[in-house]
Structure formats: C-alpha cells, structure tokens
Computed example of a mutant assay.
Amino acid sequence: MIKVHQVNLFRTQGRSQRQILDHCDLKVSRGERVAIMGESGAGKSTLLHLIAGLERPDSGHIEVNGDTLEGRTAAQLCQYRKRIGLVFQQFNLLPTLTVADNVLFQHRLNHLNDEQGVIDTIAGPLGLIPLWELYPDQLSGGEQQRVAIARALAHHPKLILADEPTGNLDEHTGDEVMALFAQLTRQLGLTLVMVTHSRRVAATLERTLHLREGRLHD
C-alpha cells in the first residue's frame, strides 16, 4: 500500500539547513495498522504530510497504492487526497455545518450516493446519531474528534493517515475515541498510519516504528 524509499527532506533555519528525513524508508502492507513514534521535532508529522501529498520531499520516491506521487501537479495531488482519509490533532470541522454535513462533506465531494450506509456503518458505531443536527461549537472535544474520524472514513478510503488524533483530548476520552477508531479501521479492513506520542495508543496497533535521526527503526 505504501512505499517510501530513500526520502530526504531539509528545512532551512537561518543560513543553515537541517536534515529532517535522511534516506528514510517505510513499507506498509494493505490492511496493516502502523504507529509512528519519536521525539518532538523528529519529523513524524512531516513524513505523514509527504505521504498525504501535502509536502514534497527534496529527493526520494513515494508510492501509495501503486501511484507515484513525485512529479504530480497540485491539482493531481488534490485529487489524490480525495481518495485517502486524513485525521489531525486539530479537528478542522467546518463551524457553519452540522455534524451530518461535516461527516458527509468529503463523501459528497466524491459524488457518492450511499449516505445511509455511512450512517449505519460509521456514524452509528461512533455514537454520532444523537448529535446529527448539532454544530461543532455545541460538541465536546471527544465528540468533535469522533466527527472528524467519521468524515475521514465516510468516502470509503483504503488508507487513513492520522496525526496525533488524540493529542487534544484527555487520557480517558482519548482512550475511548482510539478504541472506536481502531475497531472501525479493523472492521473496514483499512490501512492506517498514525503518528502518536502515546505508547498506550501505539499499543492498539499492530506495529510501532520509531523515527530517530531522520530514519525509521523497529
């Protein structure tokens, strides 16, 4: 599903450059669920952004589901992102839309027509039906993150990229949200790559990798 090969990425800091990723390699099989851990500033989120096509590497090769990302135009990368699911630490919900419209936003952008299926298989298990007509500012943090997860799953992506999805939640709420998230991705057979600082969260997935000095280690 994912092949990252010999990827390098630099950041300019004043008059010098810092290497964030150093010939970084990653392979993730279809249906596998992988956690990426590492110190703050190690490049975990950057690696996720590269796989999502939100940033470009300075060199190296990234392939997702048989598609090569390098050389694609901004418009092509935008179309690519419509086929994957993204969950971030910040919920990024649209404040003027109800829970229903936030959940179904990406689904409708992809011109899909099985909204009842989304309600039955995703919104229902995430406990969102009682919140369906509410707005984001009427929800708790845990409820908002469940909406963000449902939105990421609603258009039936095969790949989910999650960046600290429980980072803004207290420990108890984060555990509840993560349990639901892990259960749904497992049931739907999705590939999941998650950046997390929590060993407890990482332990819910099948494999944990550590990013150190620009490279991934078991």
Score class of each variant (00 low, 15 high):
N92V: 05
I122Y: 04
Y135C: 02
Q79G: 09
Y80E: 15
Y80T: 11
L86A: 11
L131R: 02
H111M: 15
Q116M: 09
L77H: 12
T98C: 00
W132A: 02
G127F: 03
E115R: 06
T121N: 10
I84L: 09
L104F: 05
W132P: 08
L134F: 06
H107Y: 07
Q106F: 13
W132Q: 06
C78G: 15
Q79D: 12
P125T: 11
G127I: 11
C78S: 15
V99H: 05
N113K: 13
A100R: 13
G117N: 15
N110Q: 15
I84Y: 01
F91C: 14
I129C: 05
L134H: 10
I122F: 01
E115K: 02
L128V: 00
H107C: 12
E115G: 11
Q79P: 08
Q89M: 08
R83W: 10
P125E: 08
P125G: 15
V103A: 05
V118D: 00
P125Y: 05
A100G: 05
T121G: 06
L94K: 00
I119E: 11
D120T: 12
L128N: 08
L86R: 04
L86P: 11
G85I: 00
Q138Y: 11
D137C: 05
Y80S: 11
V103M: 04
F91M: 05
Q116S: 09
L126I: 02
D120I: 02
F105C: 03
R108N: 01
K82C: 09
P95R: 13
D101Q: 06
I122D: 06
Y135T: 12
V118A: 02
T96H: 07
V87G: 10
L94D: 11
I122K: 04
T98L: 08
L109T: 01
F88D: 04
L134I: 00
G85L: 03
Q79H: 13
R81I: 08
P125F: 14
L126N: 10
A100P: 01
H107D: 01
P95W: 07
H107A: 11
R83N: 14
N92W: 06
D120S: 10
N113S: 15
A100C: 12
L77G: 02
V103I: 14
L109K: 00
T121V: 14
D114S: 10
D114V: 03
N113Q: 14
H111K: 14
D114M: 10
G127W: 09
N92H: 12
Y80L: 03
I119P: 02
L109V: 13
F105A: 08
W132Y: 03
G85P: 13
D120V: 04
G127M: 07
E133G: 04
T98H: 05
K82Q: 14
G117L: 05
G85K: 09
Q116A: 11
G127N: 06
I129N: 09
Y80H: 15
Q90H: 12
G127A: 07
V118G: 01
P136T: 02
L97V: 02
V87R: 00
A100T: 11
L104S: 00
D101A: 09
D101M: 10
W132V: 04
Y80F: 15
R81T: 08
C78V: 15
I119H: 11
G124Q: 06
L94H: 00
L93E: 12
H111Y: 12
L97E: 02
G85Y: 08
L77Y: 03
L126K: 06
T121R: 13
